[in-house]
Write a protein that binds this DNA or RNA. Structure first.
Lengths: 337, 337
DNA sequence: GCAGGGAATGAAAGCGCTTACACCGTTCAA
DNA sequence: TTGAACGGTGTAAGCGCTTTCATTCCCTGC
């Protein structure tokens, strides 16, 4: 393996000049730059990451913490972050902390703090103030996507307001028997999104003078399967049935549509279904939803971070509300007569 | 930030002893070990990754190259790899090379070669021999999951044989009008799986003396939506319709089931549908499939790698055939009378 | 009682880069 | 004409660890 020393020898330059030539920092004459480049190319030289990190203090590596990559939303964020980082020549270290609190603790401590990353992007995680403090204490910018991170920059959508207007959409169509599928306790612990969306739903219902029946606010695990199971209970019983379901995620809305079909319920004639997120399957199911473009949010998080690196020392805490789009498709309509 | 030097001072030991005590390598008296541990804990010391990598040559970081994380299969592999790596105290650097050849080239060269990873796991990628050679040349083990990597270790399932026996399952049920949904050209370029599965399908058909109608071997992009679209064409036409569809992935099988439902076709009474992979939604759709546990494959890849690190210099190239399970559910039955 | 062998430890030499600093030769304004 | 300013370059001091090697000390066997 050729090192910078060999390149310098071959180019007839000092290693300092080669370093400057290849990194683009510092003044180097065009002639030297070209010779350094040529020598590096001939030897197939690739600078050692650990050496340059150690010397410069920058790793060109970003940590991305997600609860899972098996939900569409998270996978989309990961792709957005990954693509933006690749373009910028950064590496992405993925921390998939499915296993919960214990693992998460050790990740934050043993991994993120090991100066291995220049910054951290946390998706939908409600970190404690302690945890946030630790990150900031070691001078590593932290940006949160889809989750409130007091003291850190965040990119998020207005979950409360959007859930409210989604519910209002149903109410305006004439629905009064509206059920809501929210997240279950596992999710509530780490993320505040289900709770926030539920609050928006309840607010809209109250404002319209409509009852929020406890039995019509059901919990599921944010998957198609999970929502399918609870939607079967909701729709299959002999008791009165809702005319509309607002699910806190598109996956749960899709599960609801599938359950409805099982009972011969037509969507939207017999049941309106409204989702939230902008899932790639929304089109196929004609799902009305609020599209939040998680891929774009991931890319934006990277831009913010990289800007901060260049911009200098401004460690501004910005809270960006990401724009959404209300995609009205076929799954919502006026209630049955 | 406390460094090993501060820890050594506090513990009243040399930095060499502290290093040995904390890493567990080399002889250290129990008393010193304890003092080093205590001092490190008090100072919140976490060793610098780049420094130890630079000094030791090991990064404790594994590169994982995937074409996307938005398919269930890949996301599952990522989770399997991630969990295993986290347990072992390794980092995972994710290279999501959705964008194709150009990006992939620069990733392999600029990133993987920068000595940033101890090993690489490539999922479903048909790397060229050149690319494989480069990796091996720099002494970095390479293991492939779900794709043939000549010269490197691989974990894979018997795509050809399994596609064959899946097809035979349909044939034994009495089907003779069997369609196959395979991958489209984008996928074929980088991965050999669709082609291999199609070959298995064709072999079984030929062996049974059944015709492989070109119009019944249709291409889709391995997504639910993509397969839904082509399945609508396949099933909705006025011409003769197949009685069974063997899709090269569960997602495509699910798309087929959804398309069938649109036309009022009952599964399996009017149409048998057979998938492959073991998707988490398979249960909901009652999908008969071949379960290949990608999560387990990811975990196995990590074990193989880590074993190799400990085991020593044996750079054995092993080709592991991962066990699968034929999950017979409700989506396949005898053909309509 | 003494050589020989470990175990425990510390000093110090790197690992392969980046960058502060010093230096030289120009250029250009005063 | 002079000196400040600056572009271009090299020297060398680290970055924060790991690991080799030498040293010390204690135990064992003869």
């Amino acid at each position: 393996m050729a090192g910078i020393k060999e390149v310098a020898e071959r180019a007839g330059l000092s290693i300092a000049t080669v370093s400057r030539a290849l990194s683009g920092k510092g003044p180097v004459s065009p002639a030297s730059r070209e010779r350094a480049r040529a020598a590096a190319a001939e030897l197939g030289f690739v600078p050692s990451y650990q050496a340059s990190s150690l010397a410069s203090g920058r790793t060109r590596n970003i940590g991305l913490v997600v609860p899972t990559v098996r939900r569409w939303y998270f996978a989309s964020v990961v792709e957005g972050v990954s693509a933006a980082l690749l373009d910028a020549g950064y590496d992405l270290t993925l921390y998939n902390i499915t296993e919960g609190a214990v693992r998460r603790r050790s990740i934050l401590q043993d991994f993120l703090l090991r100066k291995r990353v220049d910054a951290v992007i946390a998706v939908a995680l409600a970190l404690t103030e302690d945890e946030i403090g630790q990150m900031l204490a070691i001078q590593r910018p932290l940006v949160g996507i889809g989750g409130p991170l007091p003291g850190a920059s965040t990119i998020r959508i207005d979950d409360h307001g959007l859930a409210e207007s989604a519910t209002n959409h149903l109410i305006r169509l004439g629905h009064s028997r509206i059920a809501h599928i929210t997240g279950d306790s596992v999710y509530e612990q780490d993320f505040r999104i289900p709770r926030t969306r539920r609050a928006g739903f309840e607010k809209a219902m109250m404002a319209a003078g409509l009852p929020v029946r406890p039995s019509w606010v059901v919990k599921a695990d944010f998957t198609i399967e999970g929502a399918y199971a609870v939607a079967r209970d909701l729709l299959g019983g002999t008791s009165e049935r809702p005319t509309a379901v607002f699910a806190a995620s598109d996956e749960m809305a899709i599960g609801t549509i599938l359950a409805a079909r099982d009972f011969g319920l037509r969507v939207p004639e017999d049941l309106s279904v409204l989702g939230m997120d902008g899932h790639e399957l929304g089109d196929l199911f004609g799902l009305t939803t609020i599209d939040q473009d998680p891929r774009g949010q991931g890319a934006l998080a990277v831009s913010l971070l990289l800007e901060g690196f260049d911009g200098g020392t401004e460690r501004a805490v910005v809270d960006t509300e990401y724009p959404t789009r209300f995609a009205i498709r076929r799954s919502t309509a006026v209630p049955p007569a």
